[in-house]
Computed example of a mutant assay.
Amino acid sequence: MAKVLTNQIRRLRFDANEMTQQSLADAIGVSRQTVVAIEKGKYSPSLEVAFKIADVFQVELGQVFQYQVSEAAR
């Protein structure tokens, strides 16, 4: 079964006064394009970047990222 990394970054940004992708990128030290790719699930962040994202939103890592069986594999 295929597993996929999903995330709640878009929702967390919205909940954080509609934080922009650029603001998040600046806070974690990556480009906006990197944030876009992570948010869309096209790129898996390094562990360091994943923790930085969680830290920005002051949540646990598991509230940002989930690792689950993909719908296509079912």
Rank of each mutant, 00 (worst) to 15 (best):
Q8C: 08
L5V: 15
P45N: 11
T20G: 10
R13L: 07
S31L: 08
Q66S: 15
A25C: 08
Q8P: 03
E60K: 15
Q22L: 14
T34C: 06
V4Y: 03
F14C: 02
D26C: 04
V69W: 03
L61A: 12
Q58H: 12
V36A: 11
G29E: 05
V69P: 08
V4Q: 12
D26S: 15
G62L: 10
Y43V: 06
Q22P: 00
V59L: 11
T34R: 07
Q8S: 14
K40Y: 09
K3A: 08
V49I: 15
V64C: 04
L47H: 03
S31E: 12
T20N: 07
Q8M: 09
Y67S: 10
E39Y: 09
I53M: 06
E39N: 07
E18F: 05
T20H: 03
N7W: 04
E39I: 06
V35C: 10
N17R: 15
E48A: 15
L5P: 00
K40N: 14
Q63H: 13
F57S: 00
T34L: 08
Y67I: 13
Y67H: 12
V64G: 01
T6L: 10
L47M: 05
A37H: 09
E48F: 13
L12Y: 00
V69F: 07
K52R: 15
D15M: 10
V35R: 03
T34P: 00
A2L: 14
Q63S: 13
Q68H: 13
K40I: 10
R13Q: 02
L47T: 09
Q58N: 15
Q58W: 01
Q22F: 03
Q22T: 13
S23P: 00
I38E: 06
D26W: 10
L24W: 04
Y43A: 04
K42T: 10
Q8K: 15
E48W: 08
V4K: 14
I9G: 03
A73S: 15
V49P: 01
Q66C: 12
G41R: 04
I28M: 03
G41K: 05
A16H: 12
I9Q: 01
S44W: 00
V64N: 01
A27Y: 05
S23D: 13
S31Y: 09
Q33T: 13
V59R: 11
P45Y: 02
I38R: 05
A73N: 05
T20Q: 07
V64W: 00
E18N: 13
L47V: 09
K3Q: 09
N7R: 05
R11N: 15
E71N: 12
